[in-house]
Design a protein around this nucleic acid. Sequence first.
DNA 1: GTTTCTCTGTACCATTTGGTACAGAGTCTC
DNA 2: GAGACTCTGTACCAAATGGTACAGAGAAAC
Lengths: 186, 186
Amino acid sequence: MARAITEKADLLPCLAEVFRDYGYEGASLALISQATGLGKGSLYHFFPGGKQEMAEAVLAEIDAWFTTSIFTPLRTTPKAAHAITNMFAATATYFQSGQKICLLGLMGLSETRDRFAERISLYFQHWITALQNALLRLGHNAQKARTLAISSIAAIQGALVLARALNHTDTFNTVLAQAEQACLTL
Amino acid sequence: MARAITEKADLLPCLAEVFRDYGYEGASLALISQATGLGKGSLYHFFPGGKQEMAEAVLAEIDAWFTTSIFTPLRTTPKAAHAITNMFAATATYFQSGQKICLLGLMGLSETRDRFAERISLYFQHWITALQNALLRLGHNAQKARTLAISSIAAIQGALVLARALNHTDTFNTVLAQAEQACLTL
DNA sequence: GTTTCTCTGTACCATTTGGTACAGAGTCTC
DNA sequence: GAGACTCTGTACCAAATGGTACAGAGAAAC
């Protein structure tokens, strides 16, 4: 049989897209098969655990990407203001100004949450903590840093909801700009 | 056969809960039947259009509730500051400080959006416009009123995502308090 | 009491679901 | 070339899916 020369890693973006578009429940194996171009045989070869394992792999990859591209830079970028500005820019790029949604946010809302509760919770905790750290470095007091960090991540998630609901990317950018300004205002 | 003396209106909260917990796709007729205590026969008697009609009825009821309890008061409460404070309070009560999620926000995220796109979009537009109106009355300029209104609704939606993901109601209240303060600060 | 209308449970339907089994084709190693 | 290993398509499975058909029970109207 013809081989598709597919690396497991190359599959993850495809899988992520399906889960993002249809949710965990709505992403049937038929859809996944169609999106990846792989039959069930191949899918179960790469992911013996089935859909659950596919979703876990996707979430793990997203987590890894955010850790290296968002969370770590927030701590290591020398100038705190730069760190924060970069974070908002990278976030806007990643989510394509709201055209792409946050899979972890989506999964946190529906009953799928229970399946991946730990991973979802940690993702947001890490994000909040990393931003809080940068805000402290910027000069905010502990209380304000924590509140601002939580509000900023909430703003990002809410912006994604609004941008999708209104089908309007400007909304996303407006909210992010406002949140960024709040962070940088001492 | 024994009658359950059920009014169609009494069914909607039950249906809403199922859709909220499992999403549109995940809410199977079996789950709906269990939650409402009605067999398929009764369900299809009340909702000949099936699941789609059930969801539409739920969304319509939510829309009606928000119109009378949130949107209209935002315009008609004499003192703008009171209108805004009341809105945040009513919102927190409705969503039980983040323990209950926003069905329209959830549906906006997954592919279910296409099914109810119009309704979802209008819901958020109405909310934003009503809040914007109150912010104008409070003394914000047009630009600021619009930006603040959008950011506030985003904050609420994001707070719901975070509260669920972190399983922490304090997070919800923190974000809402911050948003309310931003609205009331001229 | 009869008729009518509203409601309800059961049985059924085709389709799709996630998942398994397995033979075989490609590729690599020796 | 033999053998092992990786990958892939097909066929199959039991269970669940949304939806339909329908007989009959309860209550209300006459």
